[in-house]
Write a protein that binds this DNA or RNA. Structure first.
Lengths: 151, 151
DNA sequence: ATTATTGCAAACGCTTTGCACTCCC
DNA sequence: GGGAGTGCAAAGCGTTTGCAATAAT
């Protein structure tokens, strides 16, 4: 998917929800899809300020939430008491291994997980809209495998 | 498992790690295992203050972390940017469905998840110590199923 | 006696809020 | 023109930290 497709998708999403089309919202969209890896809302805000934008913190936080609702961003939580986001553009569904020693984040795909979500939800009569699956431990890095102090 | 067994387990854990045996630590242990459901560290602190303890916030936070390392408490994260805990005493392994409308938390057990954690970790050479699995959506409550505004 | 642990209060990081100004519809 | 959206600064919330006093070893 190209940048202009993302713009078009966001535009449609905004209209559908009676939200206004503003230049600030597309500025946030552009920075978010260009951002490598997983980022916090404040991180994106700082990054935009650094590149001389005069966007406000409130607008970044608001817009990121809209982008997540729209499906352009994915909301993540790696157990750090802050919300992380990642672009969902040109990405296949995946989950994460998180190294508790060095903080590395490794992605993996396992289709069985989706099936489990579906089965459990149906069993219980729960209307699932999403899930979160993280594996914590020590990554393949030799330093991390050795480190006995880490959790 | 009885209260005195938990005390004994915690005592052994503390000695093993060269941590001191203090009355404050066992006071926190007692309140934590008595607490119904999932609680935040500050919540436990406030609850202890309310019942006229003169424990400090720092001690509660420190001790809860020790209890989690010891395995007496389980660390959870329900996507709220705060850490939750629950007693692991007399509990079987389980994960959670979280209602994004009313906040209800429903527990479920699915042994396949453990297998997936094992398989993925071995495949990648990751030394897994734990995982977190949450399903988000709307619970069976009629109000929640109707509510179109909720995520 | 030594030093980990405690209580207190202040600082921290991320997020949300209140407000007056702006500009999309 | 009306009201949603914006920028700014301050407040909120959960958590961590620095420090002097205390108590476990």
């Amino acid at each position: 998917m190209k940048r202009e497709d993302a713009h078009e998708e966001f535009r449609r999403f905004l209209k559908r929800g009676d939200n206004r089309i503003t230049p600030e919202r597309f500025e946030v969209l552009d920075h978010a899809i260009d951002y490598e890896g997983h980022f916090g809302a404040d991180e994106l805000y700082i990054s935009m300020k650094t590149s001389h934008s005069n966007i406000s913190r409130a607008t970044v936080y608001n817009t990121i939430e809209l982008l997540a609702q729209c499906g352009i961003l994915l909301k993540r939580n790696f157990g750090e008491n802050k919300t992380r986001y990642e672009s969902n553009i040109n990405k296949t569904s995946h989950d994460h291994l998180i190294c508790t020693n060095c903080g590395a984040i490794i992605e993996f795909s396992e289709p069985k997980i989706q099936k489990i979500v579906k089965t459990i939800s149906e069993e219980i009569g729960f209307d699932a809209s999403g899930y979160s699956f993280n594996i914590f431990g020590k990554c393949t890095n030799a330093n991390c495998q050795q480190n006995k102090n880490a959790k």
